[in-house]
Amino acid sequence: MKARKNMKKGNVQNREHFLSRFADRVQEGVPAKRENKVKPISSIYNLLEKESIEDVFIGNARTIHAETIRTNTENLTEVLESICENVAKDQILSSIQTDNEKLENWTSKRTVQWTPQDGNQNVITAAQSRIGITYCDIALAESGTVVLMNEQNKGRSVSLLPEVHVVIIPKSRIVPRLKEAMEIINGRVNRADSFPTCVNFITGPSNSADIEFVLVVGVHGPLETIYVLVEDE
């Protein structure tokens, strides 16, 4: 396998001695390929026979305080514009990789784009922005979750530091649940040359139950999450 550019292998220290201390109390060698005896199945699949995947997604997003706006490729930029109404360009940070020319034009006109060459300045911008716009890689119907894989042009801070997180979700990227997402990620993580170093499953705005187990919305991450669901087929 070809390794990622410039990547150095990390050190591993004290492994042999550490493991030797209890090797005799666990199984030796490589375990046989294991199959779960019981394969649990989520009831989401029953639900999906009756309801469309996007409806299930939107319904579950609502329960986690994420508002969803539905649109199509045609009208996407208008929707984004309406969300960003009255917010200045330097208050909006985006990190989107897209072939959609109209969207590309809009983001370059209305947002500060994540620019790897500018290094840490990107993070500072993110911390000062009101809105961060991302484009999701996968979405999960069962929990109203979006999945972002962070790579060169897709910074981690964009979905984290601004007060409002806007996520563009192509309908075709919604899968039933975690299971399907893990399969996709598994395919990507094993590509030695370009795996995502960070994959985030994000489900609504940040929250906490640390005070009396009462769920409060908005702790360290965004205070508000807006999903823009795009009919792309």
Binding site: K5, G119, N120, E151, T197, G204
Partner: peptide, 21 residues
């Protein structure tokens, strides 16, 4: 909850060409 607000999967340190992480 069916999933928590954030489930983060980290695969090594950031790549050289990445900015944050």
């Amino acid at each position: 909850q069916p999933i928590s607000s954030y489930v983060t999967l980290l695969n090594g340190p950031k790549a050289e060409e990445e900015v944050d992480g």
